[in-house]
Design a protein around this nucleic acid. Structure first.
Lengths: 237, 237
DNA sequence: CATACGCCCTCACGTTACGGGAGGTTCAAG
DNA sequence: CTTGAACCTCCCGTAACGTGAGGGCGTATG
């Protein structure tokens, strides 16, 4: 017969853990002293070892309790459940690891210098992962690697184009105006350059712009009226 | 300016989350109505997006707060910390997955039929992982695969040997008695058969027996006096 | 018998990031 | 004015304990 401290030392758990297991009925001591000190037997120790084994497998205390008391015990169910959980957990963690390692390489190239850029880059990577397929991404990367200078020009051109569109909107210029039509043509050119004319890629881009409150630091709430304006210029209405 | 419900819908979080972030000072609304309704600005939305991005990376809310407020911001520190955590997490989960897949194969061979066997097997696998090196394990598995019949004999012989040793102890037979010496020799033979004469393997076995409260369902509290008795027979004292 | 010390007890708040209900107020539309 | 949706604060809950408070018990020693 052991008291709680002895059992804790023998088994490697804390006294608090043994109190907790008693409180929840998982491991109830076989006896107690007149003063109320807990007394544990060999059988209690053996049961504790079993509990610890199942805990190590990742079962919750509730699950441990169930498996130690039910008659229709199924080792297979325990293992398959845990294997499924582990595989999902590993896959999720691995995806994030791959993302972060890519981001780490960006840092190595010193392309990020501020907290704002850092957060926008993470955000962009997250959305890219959400909206584009791996095939689309490989295609895009191939094209961009071959035209790095043009990419930078395009990046500089978008803010200018958007400012011009916004100016026309602010002036109340009708979308049928030749100036707006020219801007719409330019808009389409830049989009086409981004997507390489791929309609699937264009659809992914459109879905992202329609679904996200911000994209690459741009508030889509402000962006959408602009896109509608350009669409009206495109259709001539 | 948005109220809390509009912001929740735009950003994909719950109202409760926004309350919580306000409570802990992470995202404080820029204003409020006379009635106390929260009012959020564009800047609040942008900050929320940043918070969500960092949350997705796995940072705690406290860490998010720190990184959004400090001047000596270090993207590299964030990423390296998380990568390290992820790698450890993946390695741990993967080790357990491998263990469970091995156990699953045991189940496939129907070598486990009861809850008791199941728990003892898991316990044994856990200890094996703790005390033996991969090299030792490969060595042991190779030897056992080649002598499966003898292994079963040995497994049956240990309880008989231990019962005989216990009987001599109960009778108070001195360890120098020829009968006890014979038992000690037999004990050593079985151990040597298990370890293949490998002193490193013997050391791992010894360490396990000395450290664990139970091994393969055996209470080491009872086992240790027996091992001491056999040791005294071995040295002739 | 008194004291000291180690071990034991129960109670209760804390951890993290919210979920969700209770009980009430505010706001906009009919 | 009524009604219903949206808002508010407060508070308990989640899982598995850690930790401190305030006290009692058991044993050894003076």
């Amino acid at each position: 017969m052991w008291k709680v401290g002895e059992l804790a030392r023998r088994s490697g758990v804390t006294v608090r853990t043994l109190h907790h297991y008693h409180d929840i009925g998982l491991l109830v001591p076989s006896g107690s002293t007149g003063a109320g000190h807990r007394l544990y037997t060999d059988a209690d120790l053996a049961k504790l070892q079993q509990i610890l084994v199942l805990r190590q497998l990742g079962l919750t205390l509730e699950q441990v309790g169930e498996y130690l008391t039910r008659d229709d015990y199924s080792p297979r169910a325990v293992i398959e459940l845990r294997l499924q959980q582990l595989r999902e957990q590993i896959a999720t963690a691995d995806r994030l690891r791959v993302q972060l390692e890519g981001l780490s390489r960006l840092l190595d190239r010193a392309e990020i210098v501020s907290a704002e850029q850092f957060l926008q880059t993470i955000e962009a990577l997250t959305m890219i992962d959400k909206y584009y397929t791996p095939e689309q991404l490989a295609n895009m990367q191939e094209r961009y690697s071959a035209n790095i200078d043009r990419i930078k020009e395009v990046e500089a051109e978008w803010p200018r184009l958007m400012a011009a569109v916004q100016a026309e909107m602010d002036k109340g210029t009708p979308p049928t105006d030749p100036a707006v039509q020219a801007l719409a043509q330019k808009w389409d050119g830049l989009v086409s350059e981004f997507t390489g004319g791929d309609p699937n890629l264009q659809a992914s881009l459109k879905k992202m712009y329609e679904s996200e409150p911000t994209v690459a630091g741009m508030d889509m709430g402000k962006m959408r009226p602009m896109m509608e304006y350009v669409q009206r210029a495109r259709t001539g209405e």
